[in-house]
Design a protein around this nucleic acid. Structure first.
Lengths: 209, 209
DNA sequence: ACGTGTGAATTTCTTCACAGCC
DNA sequence: GGCTGTGAAGAAATTCACACGT
């Protein structure tokens, strides 16, 4: 029962990383879980957990549930997390700096191998003893030498679109953008946005004025 | 045709902040737009834009489309953005610091009025000339004096749950959490998560190994 | 002629409920 | 008895298509 990527709705794919988060917490206390427990943990129904997972294979055992290590391994494979991913970071202002100092990426297999900026004041600056900010003109060389597919975009909104286009021209396939701008790129490029203002504006709808 | 909050699906509410982003860009070049143009900009269908907006009122004119300023004002009111919002920030490590130095919140009407940490080394430190990191024990007093409803949670995952509970006990109604942890809180508390690892894991599904 | 607002049709997503296996 | 995987049912979201106002 082989499965093509196009077959699986994105809404299901989007839940898989959350399953991983839940599984890693549950693993601290036990070896096995089930759809009811996972669902309670995440706020989904047990049926939905089972339906989602059944899109990719049969990972559970009747009467027993799911072996946590086994299920984790399977989801990791589905999400292509059974390898390390190299990334570049473009834009070394406040947010860029914070990301370069953040350890949560590398512990999950994501490594920032180079950082870029266009400002002469920043170029050459060493961050965290490991990364030196480079001129943005070196982008293409670094991306292609390291066969990098993912970029984190932390430039100001005013230059986000043009920078994103440059990244795509250099061969980048996926972008995690922190810029408060909707990027217009070829559909085969995968873009995810992190925009705290949008999250806050979503929250305020439910608050009392 | 009055509308109760419960009536509107969250998936529609979640799109409204994006409409605002698009409108602010379009406003730079024109006074009027329509559902087709807005939809192209955001990657939604024209019909969806019209259906979404019709949930809240009749904001357009047949034959003309939408006046951008008027529509912006209406959506701002719907999302309770026609006022300033005060927030507290809890956890002054890397991410907390970056947020305190970031200006994108206040230009959208969100103001961090106090920052907290539990570490004696950070308490008393002044950030950005305006905010002094306070002891987390002052949380309740500050929140209640300023009638604050929103908190940004930037503590390590290991203490996120207990810190969130403390915030709720102090009267916080909405939390924007940067901690890589699923919070378990009363359903009336509105929580949004920013978790870049989850975003990256979503991206890698679509990349070639 | 243009473009909204909206019932109706369609598609997608979620839940139900149960046969089958541990 | 417990719990999965899954067709079928049900609910929700999206798109269609058009009457109607400008």
């Amino acid at each position: 029962m082989s499965v093509y990527k196009q077959d699986i709705p994105d809404i299901i794919v989007a839940r898989l990383p959350r399953y991983l988060r839940a599984l890693s917490v549950l693993r601290e206390k036990k070896l096995t879980t089930n759809s009811r427990e996972l669902g309670e943990f995440l706020g989904y129904s047990a049926a939905q957990i089972r339906k989602d997972l059944s899109q990719f294979g049969e990972f559970g055992k009747q009467g027993t549930g799911y072996n946590i290590d086994y299920l984790t391994k399977q989801i990791n494979e589905i999400l292509n997390l059974d390898r390390e991913w190299k990334m570049v970071l473009v834009g070394c202002g406040n947010i860029g700096h914070a990301i370069l100092n953040y350890s949560g990426f590398s512990s999950n297999g994501f490594h920032v191998v180079a950082a870029f900026d266009s400002s002469q004041e920043l170029i050459g600056k060493k961050i965290n003893d490991t990364i030196t900010i480079q001129d943005i003109n070196n982008l293409e060389q670094i991306i292609q030498e390291n066969k990098i597919q993912i970029a984190m975009l932390t430039v100001p909104g005013s230059v986000a679109q043009e920078t994103a286009e440059k990244l795509v021209n250099c061969g980048i396939k996926g972008i995690l953008s922190y810029a408060p701008v909707i990027l217009s790129l070829p559909t085969e490029i995968r873009v995810e946005y992190i925009d705290p203002v949008i999250s806050l504006q979503h929250i305020t709808y439910y608050l009392s004025k």
